[in-house]
Structures are given as structure tokens and as C-alpha cells.
């Protein structure tokens, strides 16, 4: 693929990261003392109970929410605004209904006024990658939920991002579609090598896709444990049946269950 040599992902570094929301009803501490290094090209999942602050962490990395305390850098630059070479995917696909699939994918380039004659070809290549080549000229309402989310992923990838942020991107999909898209995502990552920060509720999904799984506590989010996943880079649906996979899943589950019973106990980082 004729891409610029930006095969290096971005390195994200969080040190004693904190976030407190001030609102009329009071203050909410959403993130407390999170320190995490995400090396370039890594796939890191954030796993934790609902409302614990996962989206908040992601939004801070995205430059959408200011940091309250600690430091947050991308490639050693403090985050003050969204990174130019960043793609983001939310739980809802957020496609623009009045634009065709192709125009939705090209949107980030149009906004940055960076559309070139090459862009169209790149968009079509991306569609090919997620098996939607025939739908370039359809409108979003003509697609299923899973297909729409794939378009949203293409939209995030069109700028060849060095950092891909995904906030429960597959949460609204059925289990089979979800697994298929996860595997698609891994394939995409081996193509482009972006750093991926991936928020999910699903232990299975986190383990299947990630190099590292970070387990967070209930609000305020603190890191309970970090797991390096020893499954190698080549993974697919069959990986779920391997013993290593099952081992890691049960370890992660154990940490979450232990925490659920004694929330005040914060076990130290367990690294494989």
C-alpha cells in the first residue's frame, strides 16, 4: 500500500494522571493516579466496571478533555489539543446520514483540507480491507449496524493515524459480528501499525485483541492490574480455544472478581 512511512505509532505516557469534574451538583473524581506507558504500535485495552472513568481517560488522550493533574504526553509532547494523526471511534458509529459511505470516510480529510486525488483510492482500499467495497456509494441507512461501524473505523483510518482511540466500538453489536470486527481490526493494525487504545467491557475481547490489558477499579479509576498477553501477533477466532488464551482470561477475571468482593484491596501490578 502506498502509504507514507509513518508506520511508527505514537507513544502515550500517563504519569499520575488525574481527572476531577466540577459541576453544579458537586465534584466527581473520575480518574486518580493512573500511570501507564503505551509504547509505539502497541494495542492496549482498558477494562473496568461501568462508569469508572475509561472514556474519561480516552478523551484526555484524545485532547477532548483537559487533564486535572499529573502529566499526559504523546511522543513526549504534552497533550493540549487533538493529535493531527489521530483516529477515534465511539460506541455509536456517528456516520453522517446525508453523506455516502465514501464521503463519510473522506470527511476527516475534507475538514483538514487534505484531500488529494490519491485519497479516493485510499478510501476504496480501506473499504476493501473491511469487505465493504461494493457499498462505497450507499448511504449509511442502507447498511447494517456492523457495516456502519466498519465504515466508522475506515473514517478513523483515512488519515493514516499514528494513534487509534476506540471507545467500546463494538459494544452495540452481536457477538459474532463483534469477533469478526475485532479480527478485522487486528488485520488493519498489522497493515498500519498505529498505537491502539481500546476501551471495552468484555474480558474476552480485551484479551483476544490486546498486547496489554489494563484492569481499572471502579470510580475513581485506578490501575488494579496490568496483563501482558502472551498470544503473539497472529490471532483469530481460533485463538479463543487455545490454553494460553483461556489462562489469561481466567486470570483477568480473577482480578475483577476479587476486586468486586473487596473493593478497597488494590492489588499491585501483575505482569506476565
Amino acid at each position: 500500500m502506498s502509504r507514507s512511512n509513518s508506520s511508527l505509532g505514537a507513544a502515550v505516557r500517563m504519569t499520575n494522571l488525574e481527572k476531577t469534574f466540577y459541576s453544579r451538583t458537586g465534584t466527581v473524581k473520575a480518574v486518580e493516579d493512573v500511570s501507564l506507558n503505551v509504547a509505539a504500535g502497541q494495542f492496549v485495552s482498558l477494562l473496568g466496571p461501568s462508569g469508572c472513568g475509561k472514556s474519561t481517560i480516552l478523551n484526555m488522550v484524545a485532547g477532548l478533555t483537559p487533564v486535572s493533574g499529573g502529566t499526559l504526553t504523546i511522543d513526549d509532547h504534552a497533550v493540549t489539543e487533538p493529535l493531527d494523526e489521530m483516529g477515534i471511534v465511539f460506541q455509536r458509529d456517528l456516520l453522517l446520514e446525508w453523506r455516502t459511505v465514501l464521503d463519510n470516510i473522506l470527511l476527516p480529510l475534507q475538514i483538514k483540507r487534505a484531500q488529494t486525488p490519491e485519497s479516493l483510492k485510499q478510501a476504496l482500499e480501506l473499504l476493501e480491507l473491511v469487505n465493504l467495497a461494493d457499498f462505497a456509494h450507499c448511504y449509511p441507512r442502507e447498511l447494517s449496524g456492523g457495516m456502519r461501524q466498519r465504515v466508522a473505523i475506515c473514517r478513523a483510518l483515512i488519515t493514516t493515524p499514528r494513534l487509534l482511540l476506540m471507545d467500546e466500538p463494538f459494544a452495540a453489536l452481536d457477538a459474532l459480528t463483534r469477533e469478526q470486527l475485532g479480527v478485522d481490526l487486528l488485520r488493519i493494525q498489522t497493515h498500519y501499525h498505529p498505537t491502539v487504545l481500546f476501551v471495552t467491557h468484555s474480558i474476552d475481547e480485551a484479551v483476544l485483541l490486546s498486547d496489554t490489558v489494563v484492569v481499572l477499579s471502579a470510580r475513581p479509576a485506578r490501575i488494579l492490574a496490568t496483563f501482558d498477553i502472551p498470544l503473539g501477533k497472529r490471532r483469530d477466532g481460533l485463538t479463543r480455544r487455545t490454553q494460553e488464551y483461556l489462562n489469561v482470561v481466567s486470570q483477568v477475571r480473577a482480578v475483577l472478581e476479587e476486586y468486586a468482593q473487596t473493593p478497597c484491596l488494590v492489588s499491585s501490578s501483575v505482569s506476565e
Binding site: M86, F90, R92, L94, I111
Partner: peptide, 12 residues
């Protein structure tokens, strides 16, 4: 949707 505005912001 608020997320739509976040998306716009993320795209600068």
C-alpha cells in the same frame, strides 16, 4: 448528539 460534537472536535 454530544459525541457528534466530540467527533468534530477530534477532527479539528
Amino acid at each position: 448528539a454530544p459525541e457528534m460534537l466530540l467527533l468534530a472536535k477530534a477532527m479539528k
